[in-house]
Amino acid sequence: MGFFFDPTYVLVIAGMLISMAASAYVNTTFRRYDQVPSERRLTGTEAAAYILQQSGITDVRITSIPGELTDNYNGSDKTLNLSQSTANSTSVAAIGVAAHECGHAVQDAKGYWPMRLRTALVPAANIGSTLSFPIIIAGVLMSWNQTLIHIGILLFSLALLFQLVTLPVEFNASHRALSILSSGGLLTPEEVPMVRHVLTAAALTYVAAALATFLQLLRLILLFGNNRDDN
């Protein structure tokens, strides 16, 4: 039985290569523009504080966290967490990343519905990612029980749904960031295209993740989705 060595494994390899390429691209792009100091010399933290103030957001706390490109916005405790490589840097790249996370804070404040949908999907996506493979394997071991196998595949599809919903959330946050930076005077007209390159590269990592998950789901369907009544 070609369970571990099967032609469909090429889909997993393709997904891994796509994700690695996207990760390498965003790291290269960030490092390139992280070497370009912004003309106004604002740090990522200062830029984030200014954007939140201009957006009328007063209940979000800015914190610094370890790591590089670990920046995130946490709507549950209203914190905008900037990595050390962003918080203390005056680079064009750092300001772009900080502005992107502020874009999520603005989404939260305005009740942007795709963001709310993504938040609501988090528990289901976590359950699906955790239980899908054990349920599929249980179905295979129980003489290819199609009910269990289909439940497992359906659960895995929740992870793909979450990533698809994530795409408009991330692209919209970047759009908001570019709009704020273009009109707020934080960057010069020459610096805005640089930020666009950084945010586009970051967005591609989400596209790559969704594509890799789709390829994995396709593999599960090809391997286990057909009836195996002959077994």
Rank of each mutant, 00 (worst) to 15 (best):
A48D: 06
F171R: 12
A93F: 11
A98V: 10
R32S: 11
R176C: 07
F214H: 14
A47M: 06
I51Y: 02
A212H: 14
E39H: 11
T63G: 01
G128K: 07
V198S: 03
G44P: 11
F171W: 14
V36Y: 07
G185S: 12
S91N: 10
L220E: 05
Q35A: 15
V192T: 04
Y112V: 05
G184A: 08
Q163Y: 07
Q84F: 09
F30M: 03
A209Q: 07
Q146P: 06
S182W: 14
A87V: 12
S129V: 02
L161T: 12
I13H: 08
L160A: 14
N27M: 15
I127R: 07
N126H: 03
T45Q: 13
L11N: 05
R41H: 10
A208M: 08
S89L: 12
L217S: 06
L222R: 13
L199E: 01
R219E: 13
G225P: 01
A99S: 07
L121C: 04
P37T: 03
I221F: 07
G67V: 03
T45A: 09
K110M: 04
R40Y: 07
F156E: 02
S85F: 06
V92P: 02
F224N: 03
H100D: 04
G185M: 11
E170C: 00
A208V: 09
R40N: 06
E101G: 03
S179A: 15
E191G: 10
T63Y: 07
L164Y: 13
A120H: 04
T79M: 12
V92D: 04
V60R: 01
A212I: 09
L141K: 09
K78D: 06
T29F: 07
F224A: 01
F5D: 15
A93Y: 08
S143T: 03
T70D: 04
A49I: 03
H100M: 05
H104A: 07
I127L: 14
F171G: 00
S174N: 10
G128V: 10
Q84K: 15
V198P: 15
L158A: 15
T43Y: 04
R32D: 13
V60I: 06
L42D: 01
L82F: 08
L220D: 02
V36P: 06
L131P: 11
T58L: 08
N231M: 12
A173Q: 12
A87D: 08
L217W: 13
D59V: 05
V60P: 00
I149D: 04
S132G: 00
F133H: 15
E101M: 11
I57S: 05
G103I: 11
Q107K: 12
D229G: 07
P193Y: 02
Q146C: 05
F5R: 15
Y25I: 12
S91R: 09
F5M: 13
L217P: 02
L141R: 02
S19V: 00
P37A: 10
I180C: 04
D77F: 13
L204D: 02
L223N: 11
F30G: 01
T130P: 03
L52K: 13
T200C: 11
W144M: 01
I151V: 15
